[in-house]
């Protein structure tokens, strides 16, 4: 009897959870909106900038890959965590910089080119990716070992799929904006990545130089956001005139991790 009661309780509670793979999913309005305004290249401007970390970057811990010899063999030198990756002058990598609002009325069809995510040497590469709503994401396994790809999405369909060495890429697209979907491999618990799904093409993920360049922005006032997995989000409002270029700097405080 207790088994039935617990099972029913669990089923009932599970029904309150997020969307699951295979569940009916209605595309978000932004993904299915009728064709709206298009950007006039003649008046479009540009926002460039840099993301910095204010303060000393935390020392990243070494990853122990002994649990899978195939992973350990893939590296000749110690591998460290990629949560906080900085370049010269404290520039911060793996930050998604995107336009949060100010593009009402515009329509941005999803690019036909897929975004690629690979797992060489039991690490996700790149560590953070950005894709547009509806754009295909392909997850490859170029390793000589097995992986599972677990996308613990809250706004889109959750996914957990295995991938044997040399298997076909996992293809996935998302119907809703979400920043950012954690990607995990539970076979190798150190493997973590993030997928940012955005409703427009005005986003970039910074490299070690912390730089971003959002081109072809129509004139207007926008909220620009920088998101980092540890330091959270930072917003700035900017106004772009016709053919205008503006430079913006985001600075995250090293002592202000999102979880603090």
């Amino acid at each position: 009897m207790y088994s039935l009661a617990l099972g029913a309780f669990a089923l009932a509670m599970a029904g309150c959870g997020g969307k699951k793979e295979g569940a009916l999913e209605t595309p978000a309005p932004s993904a299915s909106a009728p064709a709206g305004k298009t950007v006039d290249a003649a008046t479009a401007g540009e926002v460039t900038g840099t993301v910095k970390l204010d303060g000393p970057a935390p020392k990243m811990k070494a990853i122990n890959m002994a649990a899978d010899p195939a992973c350990a063999k893939a590296h000749t030198s110690p591998v460290t965590n990629e949560e906080v990756l900085t370049g010269d002058d404290g520039t911060l990598a793996n930050v998604v910089v995107y336009v949060k609002s100010g593009l009402d009325g515009y329509s941005f069809p999803a690019p036909s080119t897929p975004v690629k995510l690979d797992q060489p040497g039991c690490r996700y590469h790149p560590h953070v990716i950005g894709a547009q709503v509806g754009q295909n994401i392909e997850v490859f396994n170029s390793d000589q070992t097995i992986h599972n790809t677990h996308l613990s999405s809250k706004e889109n369909r959750e996914l957990n799929q295995s991938q044997l060495p040399g298997a076909q890429p996992i293809e996935k697209s998302f119907a809703r904006e979400e920043i950012a979907i954690p990607v995990r491999c539970n076979v190798h618990p150190w493997m973590k990545a993030y997928m940012a799904v955005l409703p427009n093409p005005y986003f970039q993920v910074t490299g070690k130089d912390g730089a971003f360049d959002l081109k072809d922005l129509p004139p207007g006032t926008y909220i620009l956001v920088a998101w980092h997995e540890i330091y959270g989000t930072s917003e700035q409002t900017i106004t772009i005139g016709p053919k205008e270029s503006k430079s913006v700097t985001f600075a995250f405080k090293a002592s202000a991790a999102a979880g603090d």
């Binding site: 649990a67 899978d68 010899p69 195939a70 992973c71 070992t145 097995i146 599972n148 677990h150 957990n160 799929q161 295995s162 044997l164 995990r184 539970n186 076979v187 190798h188 618990p189």
Partner: peptide, 27 residues
């Protein structure tokens, strides 16, 4: 504790077979 609960995505089989590759969290 090893965060391995989802290391085998299928059930009741394991990676489509009775015995999966015994690496990482799969173990």
């Amino acid at each position: 504790s090893n965060d391995a609960g989802l290391s085998i995505p299928d059930w009741p089989l394991a990676y489509g077979s009775l015995v999966p590759p015994m690496v990482g969290g799969i173990r």
